[in-house]
Amino acid sequence: MRYIRMAIEKESPEQLGYDRIKNNLTESSVRDRSLKDLGVVLDDLLLPYPDHRGDRRLRDAIAEMSRLEGDDILVTAGASAALFIIATALLERGDHLVVARPNYATNIETPRAIGASISFLDLTFEEGFRLDMGRLARLIGPETKYVSLTAPHNPTGVTFTEGELKELIALVESRGSLLLLDETYREMAFGRPLPVAASLSDRVVSVSSLSKTYGIPGIRTGWIACRNRELMERFLCGKEQIGICGSVLDETVAFHALAQRRTWLPENDGRIARAFDRVRTWMEGEGHFEWVRPAGGCVCFPRIRPDLPVDIDAFYRILNEKYGTYVGPGHWFEMDRRHMRIGYGWPLEEELEDGLASLSKAVREAMRD
């Protein structure tokens, strides 16, 4: 495999240095939580090798909210490790898959590193970043190993209906392929969340984590959900060869966090709703930007209007260096840099307010004469 360093990681705030950022609008999660916030005490925790599939209590808790069984869950070191395990377990050089674009970079770069053949289902602003089922059907061939999508979509926050999900699964099943659905933002849907796709078919592999909705990316806990036991055994083989098992510390914290979800997820929802309303109000009054309004998650993907004579490099330079405000530029997602991902769930209220004001000022100052 030929690894390259992904821009979204190389240019991430943790690599740049949080102390250099005044208004951090790059994050794609809610605000980070501490062990104290979770009320977790670990003084007497033993540190043996744990169950290779993951802490049984944690797997059962994930399964309970997913309408699955504990053995349908494989705990991984975040959703990124889950995606890596799936790609390396299912793909070899030359194998074909279909991937939606824009997308979280790992969904694209790991198959590339393997040498797989990728057909891109390009989602466009003009089409509302909506899934075109007919175009997808034309991309799936008899050799297609799997179709890789996200819902709600990262970075746009667009999602599909339960009916569209079932139509999608039926399409993939009819072609003898698999569906990989990254559901990291599923619990952040603005309406009723979609069912966990893996609960609807044994031809579906679902991936999620505690990093985004739960605000604990530092414990590196995600999971693969799938009813196909043969596939799950292959994924377990991959996990064991990469790192044998997970971290007892991480999985214990994860279990306690998940056990409290009914208490503090409503708090998260309220905070996200307030932040979203602020972004929506800003967008409605900001003539230099346009967006496809998200239906879930805590990110959006607006763009500087294409008809405006803006020096894009100058815009980011002014935004970063003069105003200390950072967003996720379009090239993180293989898109034009007029696009940008704005995370509104992580910043404090005053940081979001100042960050949005900085975007307005930077785009005006970067206008060409």
Results as ranks from 00 to 15, higher is better:
residue 1 M to I: 14
residue 368 R to D: 10
residue 275 A to M: 10
residue 153 H to P: 06
residue 204 V to F: 05
residue 60 D to I: 10
residue 19 D to Y: 09
residue 300 C to F: 02
residue 141 G to N: 05
residue 272 I to K: 08
residue 16 L to V: 15
residue 183 E to Y: 13
residue 281 T to V: 12
residue 172 V to L: 05
residue 340 M to R: 04
residue 139 L to C: 03
residue 48 P to A: 01
residue 227 R to P: 09
residue 7 A to C: 02
residue 170 A to L: 06
residue 170 A to W: 03
residue 270 G to A: 07
residue 126 E to S: 13
residue 170 A to K: 12
residue 313 D to I: 11
residue 300 C to R: 00
residue 23 N to T: 05
residue 180 L to E: 15
residue 130 R to M: 09
residue 51 D to N: 14
residue 351 E to Y: 05
residue 187 E to N: 07
residue 13 P to I: 10
residue 282 W to K: 06
residue 97 L to K: 06
residue 321 E to R: 13
residue 190 F to V: 10
residue 348 L to H: 12
residue 226 C to M: 11
residue 293 R to I: 12
residue 301 F to C: 04
residue 29 S to Q: 12
residue 259 A to H: 12
residue 14 E to H: 11
residue 15 Q to L: 10
residue 338 R to F: 09
residue 54 G to R: 02
residue 169 I to G: 01
residue 22 K to W: 09
residue 304 I to C: 08
residue 297 G to F: 02
residue 187 E to C: 01
residue 278 R to D: 04
residue 317 R to C: 06
residue 301 F to N: 01
residue 232 M to T: 11
residue 237 C to A: 12
residue 187 E to F: 08
residue 112 R to A: 10
residue 118 I to R: 00
residue 46 L to G: 02
residue 113 A to V: 06
residue 20 R to G: 02
residue 49 Y to S: 03
residue 263 T to W: 15
residue 297 G to P: 14
residue 20 R to T: 14
residue 20 R to W: 13
residue 55 D to P: 02
residue 164 E to K: 14
residue 312 I to F: 03
residue 247 S to C: 04
residue 98 V to K: 09
residue 68 L to Y: 07
residue 224 I to F: 04
residue 156 T to V: 15
residue 105 A to M: 08
residue 100 A to Q: 15
residue 49 Y to A: 01
residue 69 E to M: 09
residue 181 L to H: 03
residue 295 A to E: 15
residue 195 P to C: 12
residue 352 L to A: 06
residue 360 S to Q: 14
residue 82 A to I: 10
residue 84 F to S: 06
residue 59 R to Y: 13
residue 16 L to E: 14
residue 36 K to P: 00
residue 51 D to P: 02
residue 254 A to I: 11
residue 88 T to E: 09
residue 367 M to H: 01
residue 236 L to A: 07
residue 237 C to T: 14
residue 334 E to F: 11
residue 316 Y to D: 03
residue 70 G to E: 07
residue 77 A to L: 15
residue 85 I to A: 02
residue 7 A to S: 09
residue 308 L to M: 10
residue 19 D to H: 14
residue 152 P to S: 10
residue 61 A to I: 09
residue 155 P to H: 13
residue 264 W to C: 01
residue 286 E to G: 02
residue 23 N to G: 01
residue 294 P to N: 14
residue 347 P to T: 10
residue 311 D to W: 08
residue 20 R to N: 14
residue 117 S to T: 10
residue 301 F to Q: 01
residue 111 P to C: 03
residue 341 R to L: 15
residue 236 L to H: 04
residue 369 D to E: 11
residue 354 D to A: 11
residue 50 P to N: 04
residue 280 R to G: 00
residue 45 L to M: 07
residue 183 E to V: 12
residue 233 E to I: 06
residue 103 N to W: 10
residue 346 W to M: 05
residue 291 W to G: 00
residue 310 V to Y: 09
